[in-house]
Amino acid sequence: MSEVDDELRCDRLTRFWTRWGLVVGAAILIGLAAFGGYLYWQHRQHQAAGVDGEQLQSAYDALAQNDTKTADAKLKTLAGSNVDAYRALAEFTQADILLQRDDLKGAAARFAAIAGDNSLAQPFRDLALVRQTMAEYDTMKPQAVVARLGTLAVPGNAWFGSAGEMVAVAYLRMNKRAEAGRLFGQIASDKDVPDTLRQRAVQMAGVLGVDAVGQSEDTKTQ
C-alpha cells in the first residue's frame, strides 16, 4: 500500500508539473525580476539624491559668490528633481532670488506653484503659502489675507507666528481691534515663536490694550 501511495503521489506531481510547471516557473522568475528591479530602483534613488544634494550645495556656493547665473542653471535642473525635498528647496531658493531682485510678482507665482504642488509634504506647502502672502501682502485686501491664512494663524501651527502677524495686521486694517489684539497676545505668549516676532507682538498687544502676560495664562488654560 505504501508503494502504491508513493506511485500515486509521484504521478500527481508529474502531471502537475507537466501542466503547470512553465506557469509556476514564469511566476517565480517574474517575482524575482520585480524584486531585483525594486532593489535597483532604490539604489538609483539613493544615487540621484546624492547627486541632487551636491547640485544644491553647488548652487548655494555660487550664490555666496554672487554668481547667480550658475546658481540659476543648477536650481533650474533641481526644480525638476524626483526627490521632493530637493525640488522644494530649489524652488524656494528660486523664489528667494526673485525677491532679492524685487520681482514680487514672479516670486509670488513661484511660491504659489509650490503651495499648489500636491506631491509635496504639507509643511512645505504651508510655508510657501505664507511666503506667497508676504510677497503679495501690499496688494491684497485684508479679507483675502484672513481667508488665506486663517487656518495657519492658530497656536500650535508651525507657521503661527508669521501667519498670525499678517492676519492680525489684516484685522487692524478691517478695524477689528479686538480680534487683532487677541491674536497679537497669543503670538506674544507663544514660546515657539521667534523672539523678534514675539517682541513686536508684545508691543502691538500693549497698544491695543491687551495684557500679553494675561493672554499667556488664557492660552495655557485653553
Rank of each mutant, 00 (worst) to 15 (best):
residue 195 D to W: 04
residue 154 V to A: 03
residue 178 A to H: 08
residue 170 A to R: 01
residue 141 K to E: 14
residue 163 A to H: 05
residue 157 N to H: 15
residue 159 W to V: 03
residue 168 A to F: 09
residue 150 G to K: 09
residue 199 Q to W: 00
residue 143 Q to H: 08
residue 192 D to Q: 14
residue 149 L to F: 11
residue 138 D to C: 05
residue 166 M to K: 09
residue 136 E to S: 11
residue 134 M to W: 08
residue 189 S to D: 04
residue 187 I to V: 14
residue 175 N to V: 08
residue 184 F to T: 08
residue 167 V to Q: 12
residue 196 T to F: 11
residue 203 Q to I: 06
residue 180 A to Y: 03
residue 152 L to V: 01
residue 207 V to P: 00
residue 199 Q to V: 02
residue 190 D to A: 15
residue 182 R to V: 15
residue 180 A to P: 06
residue 211 D to N: 13
residue 138 D to V: 02
residue 206 G to C: 05
residue 191 K to E: 14
residue 141 K to N: 11
residue 170 A to G: 02
residue 135 A to M: 04
residue 187 I to K: 09
residue 196 T to I: 10
residue 177 R to F: 03
residue 179 E to M: 10
residue 190 D to I: 06
residue 202 V to H: 07
residue 161 G to T: 01
residue 160 F to I: 04
residue 157 N to L: 06
residue 165 E to C: 08
residue 200 R to L: 08
residue 197 L to H: 02
residue 141 K to W: 04
residue 195 D to P: 00
residue 185 G to N: 04
residue 210 V to S: 01
residue 177 R to T: 15
residue 197 L to K: 03
residue 148 R to T: 10
residue 178 A to V: 15
residue 198 R to H: 05
residue 206 G to A: 12
residue 182 R to H: 13
residue 186 Q to C: 02
residue 146 V to Q: 06
residue 176 K to S: 12
residue 149 L to M: 10
residue 196 T to V: 14
residue 162 S to G: 09
residue 202 V to L: 08
residue 167 V to I: 11
residue 181 G to I: 13
residue 179 E to S: 11
residue 188 A to H: 12
residue 150 G to C: 12
residue 166 M to N: 11
residue 152 L to R: 02
residue 202 V to K: 12
residue 151 T to L: 07
residue 146 V to S: 05
residue 166 M to I: 10
residue 164 G to D: 04
residue 173 R to Q: 10
residue 209 G to R: 07
residue 202 V to F: 05
residue 191 K to V: 09
residue 148 R to A: 07
residue 183 L to Y: 01
residue 162 S to V: 08
residue 201 A to R: 06
residue 172 L to S: 06
residue 177 R to Y: 03
residue 167 V to Y: 15
residue 179 E to D: 15
residue 200 R to D: 06
residue 161 G to R: 01
residue 189 S to Y: 00
residue 196 T to E: 12
residue 171 Y to E: 06
residue 173 R to A: 05
residue 164 G to Q: 04
residue 195 D to I: 07
residue 191 K to M: 11
residue 159 W to C: 00
residue 170 A to S: 09
residue 213 V to T: 13
residue 190 D to E: 13
residue 169 V to M: 09
residue 210 V to K: 00
residue 197 L to P: 02
residue 186 Q to K: 07
residue 174 M to A: 10
residue 163 A to R: 04
residue 203 Q to W: 01
residue 203 Q to V: 07
residue 207 V to K: 13
residue 214 G to F: 04
residue 188 A to P: 13
residue 175 N to T: 12
residue 191 K to S: 14
residue 206 G to E: 13
residue 185 G to K: 03
residue 152 L to G: 02
residue 208 L to K: 04
residue 195 D to T: 07
residue 142 P to R: 10
residue 178 A to Q: 14
residue 213 V to H: 09
residue 171 Y to N: 08
residue 134 M to L: 11
residue 212 A to V: 04
residue 141 K to T: 12
residue 155 P to Q: 12
residue 150 G to P: 14
residue 210 V to G: 00
residue 162 S to I: 06
residue 167 V to P: 12
residue 142 P to D: 09
residue 184 F to H: 07
residue 181 G to T: 14
residue 174 M to D: 11
residue 204 M to Q: 14
residue 193 V to L: 09
residue 135 A to K: 01
residue 201 A to N: 08
residue 191 K to L: 14
residue 186 Q to Y: 06
residue 171 Y to G: 01
